[in-house]
């Protein structure tokens, strides 16, 4: 089983993708399963370490938080663009010390930080665990450090470590 399915998540998402692209039928299900199996077996030849997810039930919490934050920051950034030069904007860089070390967790954090408008991931140094992000409207430096650490880092550590 383990040799046939080295990456169950990848295989499942490939099958779902195949069924979404073509309409659902038994033939497409079988064809998609074969293709997904071959693709995940060839993936196993490329990358030996695989992400381990420890707490599945926390993932919906994470997705919910990300959607809420994307909504809020969309409104905030749209307001910033509309207000234009009338209000003083203070863009700036923030250095955030991270304790999260899992590579998949860091990749997910990078996607979240960059996908929310208003914050952008700039640089991460693996040796001292410091992350540099750019914030469009930097009001309170410590509040941003607090937000990233408690809202996301903790949750990602619970999921991946």
């Amino acid at each position: 089983m383990r040799r046939l399915l080295p990456y169950p998540l990848l295989t499942a998402s490939l099958i779902v993708m195949w069924l979404l692209l073509n309409s659902f039928s038994l033939g497409h299900l079988i064809l998609g399963t074969i293709i997904a199996l071959v693709a995940s077996l060839s993936m196993a030849a490329l990358q030996p370490d695989k992400p381990r997810i420890r707490k599945w039930h926390k993932i919906p919490v994470l997705i919910g938080r990300v959607l809420v934050d994307i909504y809020h920051s969309n409104v905030a950034v749209a307001g910033l663009v509309l207000s234009g030069g009338r209000r003083e904007r203070r863009p700036g860089f923030v250095v955030i010390p991270l304790t999260l070390r899992d590579r998949t967790g860091l990749a997910v954090l990078a996607c979240i930080v960059t996908a929310t408008p208003g914050t952008a991931w700039v640089e991460y140094h693996a040796d001292n665990g410091r992350l540099l992000i750019h914030v469009l409207d930097l009001v309170d430096r410590d509040a941003w450090i607090e937000t990233i650490q408690t809202r996301y880092e903790q949750l990602l550590r619970e999921i991946f470590e």
Binding site: V81, P117, A120, L136
Partner: peptide, 12 residues
């Protein structure tokens, strides 16, 4: 660095 934030509004 400010402009990097702008397209994410369109993509999200």
């Amino acid at each position: 660095y400010e402009r990097v934030h702008a397209p994410t509004l369109g993509t999200t």
